[in-house]
Amino acid sequence: MEDQAAESPYDLILKNVARFIDLNDEEKKLYISLLKKGSAKRKEFVMQPGEITKYEYFVTKGCLKVYSLDRNGVEHVSMFAIEDFWTGDMASFIGQQPSTYFIKALEDSEFLMINKENFERLFKEIPKFERFYRNLYQRSLVSYIKRANQGISLTAEERYEIFLSKYPHIANRITQKDLAAYLGITPEFLSMIRSKMSKS
């Protein structure tokens, strides 16, 4: 298998797209021409609340954290996006309304971006991309609903185990504090869970 690290950012995104739609060489060239490269240093913000989301992001290197703050200033992490993950604020991007989310780099990160104008142009010139993004957004919605249901029906320990089984490649790249904010518990409680699991 080809080492993913040796791939160009465009190879990575084209493989991602190919999971849902087939592109010919001309369509690939057009798609790549509509993308822009971006980067963020560790702890740098890619987006903050109040801003209208200008881009959809595809991570080619590093790790981004998407989160919000409640009225008490408590952090709630929505997702972690590493290589081969899409992220952003879909509602803000589509509706061009101010976002309520932060996107922050947890590592030095690189990504490919598509803006709203090129997003709309993509649908006109390569209509099959509507199917690609429909699949992308449907999967995102299903994941959100599953996670919401797990928050109601499962214990913190069960949610932690699911995270480890689903995202083992992310768990060792984030802090205990960030993982706790994703699970909706305190870092201290997560430490207790880890200690309990290590003894069982």
Results as ranks from 00 to 15, higher is better:
1 M>G: 15
2 E>L: 10
2 E>A: 09
4 Q>A: 11
5 A>H: 14
8 S>D: 15
8 S>M: 10
9 P>H: 01
9 P>G: 06
9 P>M: 07
9 P>C: 12
14 L>D: 11
17 V>Q: 00
18 A>M: 02
19 R>A: 07
19 R>L: 13
20 F>H: 13
20 F>A: 00
22 D>C: 11
25 D>M: 10
25 D>K: 12
28 K>Q: 15
29 K>N: 12
30 L>C: 08
34 L>H: 11
36 K>E: 08
37 K>W: 05
38 G>T: 01
40 A>G: 10
43 K>L: 12
46 V>A: 00
48 Q>T: 14
49 P>F: 04
51 E>D: 15
51 E>V: 03
52 I>H: 03
53 T>S: 14
54 K>G: 13
55 Y>S: 00
59 V>D: 00
59 V>I: 13
60 T>A: 04
61 K>I: 04
62 G>P: 05
62 G>M: 04
65 K>N: 10
66 V>K: 15
66 V>G: 13
68 S>I: 05
70 D>P: 01
70 D>M: 04
72 N>A: 07
73 G>D: 12
76 H>K: 11
80 F>R: 00
80 F>L: 00
84 D>Y: 09
84 D>G: 04
85 F>Q: 04
88 G>R: 01
91 A>N: 12
93 F>G: 00
98 P>T: 13
104 K>G: 09
107 E>R: 06
107 E>T: 06
107 E>H: 08
112 L>Q: 02
115 N>G: 00
117 E>T: 13
117 E>A: 12
117 E>H: 13
122 L>W: 01
123 F>M: 06
124 K>L: 11
127 P>N: 12
128 K>M: 02
130 E>N: 11
130 E>L: 05
131 R>M: 05
137 Y>L: 12
137 Y>E: 04
139 R>E: 14
141 L>A: 12
143 S>E: 10
143 S>Q: 14
144 Y>T: 13
144 Y>S: 14
145 I>R: 12
146 K>G: 06
151 G>C: 03
151 G>A: 07
154 L>V: 05
157 E>N: 01
160 Y>A: 08
161 E>C: 11
163 F>Y: 08
165 S>H: 07
165 S>L: 08
166 K>C: 01
167 Y>W: 07
167 Y>R: 14
169 H>P: 03
169 H>W: 01
169 H>Y: 09
169 H>Q: 10
170 I>R: 01
171 A>V: 05
175 T>Y: 03
175 T>L: 02
175 T>D: 06
176 Q>I: 07
177 K>F: 08
178 D>P: 03
181 A>M: 01
181 A>K: 01
181 A>Y: 00
182 Y>L: 10
183 L>Q: 06
183 L>D: 01
183 L>A: 02
184 G>Y: 02
185 I>D: 02
185 I>S: 03
185 I>A: 07
187 P>S: 11
187 P>D: 12
188 E>N: 10
188 E>I: 07
192 M>Y: 07
192 M>H: 08
197 M>H: 10
199 K>T: 14
199 K>E: 11
199 K>W: 07
